[in-house]
């Protein structure tokens, strides 16, 4: 038990160090990239609307000072870390002033988390289930169709899947809404109409992810199952006359759970990025939409805030999975 606790503590410390280093690197990449957010904003206004904002040098200076953009990048970094660590604050949002960046992000976060967590978990569970069936029933008619279909679907980028589903089910067959998180005009809250609307609007965005990741997960699970079926203990289990369901639960799934958990942890970063594109396509009011707009406008504090939260979420998920390892595999616990 003491060894386990020490192991966990070491992992936590390591992840904190990783977070700090990643955040520092990202901060400097963002702030040192050439591009003046204030100037860009004003030029965008001029070029789009053919209109001179007439902002003076004083206006530019005051605006920059408000967001700390008049300071050298080292000072900006120290200020950012100070307000983050001591005040839990990412600073003001440039494009949504006077709102703070974290308020803006926290407003969008529930939409992303709700959809992403459900879609990721569903994809993982369904992928494993389908892959197990495909591996167990290899050579069957079902497997001969489902495997190539899975191969195709797994190679479709999630954003393309989103556009395909939207075109088919929003405009051709027209059974799903084309965007947003719920119907405008509904009262947000714990009421049936709102909940049904949210679920209804979530179907296509989540399916865009689920189709692709279930397919990918199924293929990897199928490969692992086929590998396992050749093991001696599997032959012994069959020879003992154990029912198929028992073999799958007791031997197959338990042995594939660990590598599949690792695969999930490793793929989280890419999954989150792909999801941001889905949000953009469906105009889903989550962090992805916010990030796309903030990058376009050089809203540094919002970009950094989203990066911090994304890093924390991904690292935390990895940490949780690592902590689950000893539960999944007793050999790790004893080791």
């Amino acid at each position: 038990m003491k060894k386990l606790l020490l192991y966990m503590l070491r992992r936590v410390v390591l992840y904190i160090v990783i977070l700090f280093l990643a955040l520092t690197a990202f901060f400097f990449v963002v702030h040192m990239g050439p591009g003046d957010p204030v100037l860009k904003f004003l030029n965008d206004m001029q070029s789009r609307y053919g209109y001179n904002t007439g902002t003076t040098e004083q206006g530019l200076t005051a605006f920059k000072a408000k967001f700390g953009l008049d300071q050298p990048v080292g000072i900006r970094y120290l200020r950012f870390m100070e307000q983050l660590l001591l005040h839990g604050n990412f600073g003001p949002s440039m494009t949504r002033y006077p709102s703070n960046a974290q308020d803006v992000i926290l407003q969008a976060m529930p939409w992303t988390l709700g959809l992403l967590v459900v879609a990721v978990l569903l994809s993982w569970i369904l992928g494993m289930a389908l892959g197990t069936v495909l591996g167990w029933r290899r050579g069957s008619k079902f497997e001969s169709v489902a495997t190539p279909v899975s191969l195709v679907f797994s190679q479709i980028p999630v954003y393309l899947m989103a556009i395909l589903l939207a075109t088919l089910f929003v405009y051709v067959i027209a059974i799903f809404p084309g965007g947003y998180a719920y119907e405008a005009g509904l009262k947000k809250g714990f009421n049936l109409a709102f909940i049904v609307s949210v679920l209804y609007h979530a179907i296509l965005p989540s399916l865009s992810m689920i189709f692709v990741y279930v397919a990918g997960g199924a293929l990897s699970q199928r490969a692992m199952v086929i590998n396992l079926l050749g093991e001696d203990y599997m032959k012994l289990a069959e020879a003992k006359g154990l029912p198929g369901r028992t073999i799958i639960n007791r031997y197959v799934l338990r042995n594939t759970l660990l590598p599949q958990s690792t695969a999930l942890a490793l793929s989280l970063g890419g999954v989150v990025n792909g999801f941001f594109l889905i949000e953009w396509i469906f105009r889903y009011p989550g962090v992805g939409q916010l990030l796309v707009g903030s990058i376009g406008a050089f809203d540094y504090n919002v970009i950094l805030g989203i990066a911090v939260i994304s890093m924390v979420v991904v690292l935390l998920a990895n940490l949780i999975i690592e902590f689950l390892y000893p539960l999944i595999d007793p050999r790790i616990r004893r080791g």
Binding site: L42, M45, Y49, T95, R96, Y97, P98, G293, A297
Partner: peptide
């Protein structure tokens, strides 16, 4: 316009301009 400032229509401060151009205020 990505509605940068969803509920701001103050023309005097540059950060309010995002909503103005993309929301119909303008």
């Amino acid at each position: 316009q990505t509605y940068q400032n969803l509920n701001v229509a103050n023309p005097l401060w540059p950060a309010g301009n995002g909503t103005q151009w993309g929301s119909g205020w303008h």
